[in-house]
Structures are given as structure tokens and as C-alpha cells.
Design a protein around this nucleic acid. Structure first.
Lengths: 229, 229
DNA sequence: GGATGTGAACGACTTCACAGCG
DNA sequence: CGCTGTGAAGTCGTTCACATCC
């Protein structure tokens, strides 16, 4: 028999209770980023059509999404940018800082570390781990690389809650288990493997090979549709 | 008014004609990778339950997906691994090599270049581009970094069809336009922006900020559900 | 018995269309 | 009149359940 997580939630009933779909949450991130950019340009008010056009989403979809935040919109006017941003950050849970660690310090980890913009959005990298003895002690962006066996200690001491797994596929499950044991509450996985985690730990996977293959498929399709094999 | 691409397809009727959902295609990639691993371990035949359990998918879903490939399964037995792999590669369009270029040679590009596994799956990096004069001429993995203004020429000469955009958000649209003009047929975008491309060019975007925020949201949710704010 | 393929039921997400408010 | 919020309809994707075949 096969088992697929049925998305447990016997909620007690928090203030704003509605369950958001994964798709809505992802669009929330897009709205947030675009609104921040609009605000920087001096916008006070934004309409669903405006937002939708900028992000390639229908205006109806935008309104449905934003309605989850409460009645922020004013008919005839639009949404106040500043309030929307605040509501989005709160609902996404990024109206605070998330201490994050990275395991596997290769080029991908460096790309994440050098990208100003995560910190800006509420994520702070507080520790780096690698299994390679040669890398221990090296610094990347003012952060020293620590050995795996210090993980539990360092994660606890620095209050890290999120972990990024950027190790080869073979090591990914072991590393994830270690992160879970260290008390991490969510994992962003870049390794090309399906991870098994306890349901209390959140998981988001980014599989670059899958995305590249998706792209090849789409191009392949376009070809077929237009005659050329 | 808002406009969302309605996924054009007035298909003439290719051999296997059914439209595959994005989700199915992504699972195809997962099936393929897992089957290749099983085959290496000597497996001859695989059941939908087996595949599903390994990948966290229901057996029914696996069968639905694989049925798109024709009737490869044998009741009471399962699917022949070798045939499934061949069918998947063909249907995904990776029963060939895709010449691919990367624009923006930072750490992310290097991560992709160093990752053995893309080449294995049919992707070959054939050119690198960067706007930084200091990088021109440098070699990464036996590939020399070329200036942007050589893009059209080099893409044509090397027959590149796919492009990876790994530049800052501000430059992404311009770079994509250049790739499109150079004749690229599909773009994998890592820049945190929504790109506008002609419908003849396929687009897959990987937005790391969105994924991290999705993770934060999930952890945030778990928290709320379990009392702790 | 064990496993596939598939209609039918279900559920999730999106778009439509319009009442209602500023 | 412009724009929001939302029920209703529509579309898409997943799961169930079972007839069917080795």
C-alpha cells in the first residue's frame, strides 16, 4: 500500500484560520516582493489588475488570494501597499527572523550566502556545516564552516530553526536526520532525492534536474506542435 | 484586464497525443531517476506500489501517470524497468542531447556546471556568458566565459537551444530578450523576477526566495497548530 | 494472488460574473 | 465609474474501487 501525507490539521482555531493552498502561499511571496518594489517607487495604492498584470496572474486570482488577508481592499481604490505588505509578511510568518543553517558548503551554498535578499526578507544564516575535514574552519561570508558532529550543539546554541541541505544525494537522508535530531523544524532540500522526515518537520524540495527536464519537455512539445521533430 | 497564458495547442495529432499536466511531467522525472537507480541495482521489473512508496506518491497516481506512456505494465507482474526508462526519456524529450548555455557565471552557475548528472541526463553546457569584463576569458570546467555581445554568434554556432539565466533580477529581462533573439527555445530562470517571453519560448522559473518563504510559512503553521506562537 | 488500467467520485484550484461600495 | 469581495461555475488533478488479466 502507498501512503501519502493527508496534510494533518486539527486546528484549535487561530485568529485567521483559513487554510491556504500551496499555490496561494507561493503567490503571496510574489505579491510581497513586487509590492516592496512598488512601495520603493512611491506607490501608495495598488489594484488587483495592476498586481496581476505585473506577475502574470488574473485579477480575480489576485483578489481571491488577498481576500485571505482580511478586507484590506477599498472598492474603487485598491489596496494600500504598506498594509498589504505588513499583512503578507505576518501571514507568511516572516515578520520575524529565521535563523538558518546550511549543510554542504559547495557552490550552491555560496550562491545562497552571497545573495543579499534572503537576509532582507527575514532569513539569517547562522551556521555552516560540511563533512569535508579540509573545509572545517574556512570562512564564507564571515561564517566559519563547522564539522557535522557539532551540529546539535551549534544549532541549539544559535537557535536555528531552518536547515538547507546542499549535499550529494547519497548523503542527504543522513544529513536530514541529523538536522531533525538537532531540533531543526524545516528543511529546504536541494539534493536530488526524496527525503523521509517526521511530519512535525516541514519540507520543501527544489530539484534542479526535474526543472531542467521540465524545460526540455516543454521545448520538445513546442517542436512537435509546430511540425519539426 | 489581466492576461494569463491559456496554453495554446491546436495539435495536429502526434503519435502519443495526450496533454500531460505539469505535475505529471515532474513526476516523470522522478520516476526516471529512481528507475535508473533500481536498474543499476539489477531490478528487472517494478510495480506501481514499489515506485510510489519510494517517491511518496500513491500507487494509483503512479499507474495513472505511467498509463500515458502506453500499456507497458503487465498485470500481476509490474512494469519492465528498461522499457519504462526508454519510454520516459522519449516522452520527456531527453532521448537526445540538449545544448545549453548559462548566462551569469556566479556561484549558482558553477554549482550547475560542477554537478555531474545533468550531462548524464542529456544536457550539455556548451557556452557561458557574463557581463563582467573581468570574467571574460576565464575558464570554468573547460568552458571559457564569453562576453554578452558574442551571444547570438556563439549560440548559433554551437546549436544551443536552452539557456539558464543566473543573473541579478535587474538584468534578467534584458538577458532573456538577448537569449530569445539569439534563437534559444527555452529558458530556466533563477532570477527573482517574472519574465516576459514570446509564447514560442518555453519558460521554467526557480525562485529560491519563494521556496524559502514557503518553508518558513509551513513551519510557522506547524507552530500555530501546536499552541506555541 | 498480485498487479495493471480506468471510469467515477472527489477534492483543489481558477475563472466568471456580478452585487455592492467608495 | 472603478475596483473589491465572493458565490457559482468551470477546470484540473488525485484518489477510489473494481473489472481485468497474468
Amino acid at each position: 500500500m502507498s501512503r501519502a501525507e493527508p496534510s494533518r490539521s486539527h486546528g484549535n482555531g487561530s485568529p485567521t484560520d483559513t487554510r491556504l493552498s500551496r499555490a496561494t502561499v507561493q503567490r503571496f511571496s510574489l505579491y510581497l516582493r513586487h509590492l516592496q518594489s512598488l512601495l520603493r517607487e512611491g506607490a501608495q495604492t495598488v489594484s488587483s489588475t495592476q498586481l496581476g498584470d505585473a506577475l502574470g496572474i488574473t485579477d480575480a486570482q489576485v483578489r481571491k488570494d488577498l481576500a485571505y488577508l482580511g478586507n484590506l481592499g477599498q472598492p474603487g481604490i485598491g489596496y494600500p501597499a504598506r498594509d498589504l505588505i505588513a499583512a503578507l509578511r505576518q501571514r507568511l510568518g516572516i515578520d520575524r527572523t529565521w535563523a538558518t543553517v546550511i549543510v554542504g558548503i559547495g557552490n550552491l551554498a555560496r550562491a545562497l550566502l552571497h545573495h543579499r535578499g534572503f537576509e532582507q526578507q527575514g532569513f539569517r544564516f547562522v551556521a555552516l556545516f560540511d563533512a569535508d575535514p579540509a573545509k572545517i574552519g574556512q570562512k564564507v561570508n564571515h561564517l566559519e564552516i563547522s564539522p557535522m558532529d557539532k551540529m546539535a550543539q551549534i544549532v541549539a546554541r544559535r537557535g536555528a530553526e531552518l536547515g538547507v541541505v546542499a549535499v550529494p544525494a547519497e548523503a542527504a537522508q543522513k544529513v536530514s536526520d541529523a538536522l531533525v535530531n538537532a531540533g531543526i523544524r524545516g528543511i529546504l532540500n536541494f539534493a536530488p532525492t526524496v527525503l523521509r522526515l517526521p511530519p512535525s518537520v516541514a519540507l520543501v524540495s527544489v530539484d534542479l534536474a526535474v526543472q531542467l527536464e521540465q524545460l526540455a519537455f516543454l521545448v520538445h512539445l513546442n517542436r512537435e506542435d509546430h511540425g519539426e521533430p
